[in-house]
Amino acid sequence: MAYTRKLPRRERLASSLPRQEIVHDISDDEKTCECCGTDMHRMGEDVSEKLDFIPVY
């Protein structure tokens, strides 16, 4: 009998909550490869959701 670890699964945040999209990108003049002069392309994307908690004093 092999043991399999259960990965924790978090429920998605409610769709009624406000969302803010933040994109980290390089400037347009840095999107050309210095070696060969071709245009660079997007290699990957990470998406996450974070809930800000502001305590009331």
Rank of each mutant, 00 (worst) to 15 (best):
S48K: 06
L17E: 06
G37S: 04
H41V: 12
D39C: 03
H24C: 04
A14E: 13
C33A: 04
T32P: 04
A14T: 02
G44P: 08
H24D: 09
P8E: 01
G44Q: 01
P55L: 00
L7G: 08
S15R: 10
I54R: 14
R12K: 15
L7S: 14
D29V: 02
R42C: 08
E45D: 03
K31V: 01
D28Q: 10
H24W: 08
C35V: 09
D29N: 09
Y57C: 07
G37W: 03
M1H: 12
D46M: 08
D29Q: 06
L51S: 05
I22R: 05
R10D: 12
R9S: 11
I22F: 03
D29C: 04
F53N: 02
T4H: 12
S15W: 02
M40C: 09
D25H: 10
C33M: 01
L13V: 03
A2E: 13
P18I: 00
I54M: 09
H24T: 11
D52Q: 09
C36L: 02
S15Q: 11
M43E: 08
L7I: 12
I26A: 05
D28C: 02
D52I: 15
K50N: 07
I26C: 04
D39N: 05
I22M: 05
E30H: 10
S48Y: 15
R9V: 15
E49V: 00
G44N: 10
C36P: 06
E30D: 13
C33R: 01
H24P: 00
R10E: 13
D52K: 03
V56K: 15
C33P: 00
I54W: 03
S16V: 01
E30M: 14
D52S: 06
E45S: 10
R42M: 11
A14R: 14
D29A: 05
T4E: 14
S48E: 12
Q20C: 01
T32V: 15
R42T: 09
L17H: 07
E30K: 15
V23D: 08
V23W: 05
R5I: 15
E21S: 08
L7C: 02
E11S: 14
R19D: 02
E30F: 10
C33V: 03
S27A: 12
E30N: 13
T38L: 06
S48V: 00
M40V: 09
S15D: 15
I26R: 06
C35Q: 10
T32A: 01
V56C: 07
S48D: 05
